[in-house]
Amino acid sequence: MHPLLRLLACAALSTAVIGSACGGGTSEESAAPKPAAAVTNPVDPATASAITGTVTLQGTPPPNPSINMGSDPYCMKLGAATTPVFVVSDDSGLENVFVYVKDGLGNLKFPVPSSPVVLDQKGCSYTPRVFGIQVGQSLDIVNSDETLHNIHALPMANREFNRGQALRGMKYTTTFTAPEVMLPFKCDVHKWMNAWVGVLEHPFYSVSGKAGAFALAGLPPGSYTIEAWHEKLGAQTQQVTIGAKESKKISFVFKV
């Protein structure tokens, strides 16, 4: 064979070999949900405290980007929509902010809830958009749409997965093995679909709702670092010290 053609053949084979040798594969199969660990709740109800408060937005946010759902006739029928990046109430309360205890719980271990968290693909969007879950707690991902979705998790500390749900009513259950704030999900079929989950080893988290309100209840007395995370505006932290049976109010103010 002519040297040029031999070179071409070698290039073909070496490219394939190098490519297949370099990838770091992971199994797509998710671990089956583990049963809740038998840990006694270390919080004494008699001394449990709470941190409540609000998240507000200062300034006028940019308009939420409109979504072009033209790539899927089913989604398009749902009508015009916008990506809910900034959901702000009349009194400037900011929704969809993940507020959690970032530090201060020491080595305390908390039982894993036996009830699953549900992430629904409904109306060609994720419900909820921002949520929390404990390590080891089941996450049920369901498809309530008459179209197909893929649910693609993009973690840093957990195992990546990408599952297809071609039919309405399909469910995929998974768990996370390591704490991670925040872990994003996306649908590669519908590019506008995004969600974020905060994976924690404890139950002290909340997502700001209407008027930006949140509550972290059942905390043992102590000093904590509280973090508030927003998908566009980043994170803020505050130090809070609470005594037994105390309820403390704090507020986070994001600016645009």
């Binding site: 490219t15 394939a16 190098i18 490519g19 297949s20 370099c22 990838g23 770091g24 594969g25 992971t26 797509e28 990546e160 990408n162």
Partner: peptide
């Protein structure tokens, strides 16, 4: 590259 979530070396290869 699909099953391994598009690792760069495989996708480039």
């Amino acid at each position: 590259t699909v099953l391994w979530y598009l690792p760069d070396p495989i996708s480039i290869a």
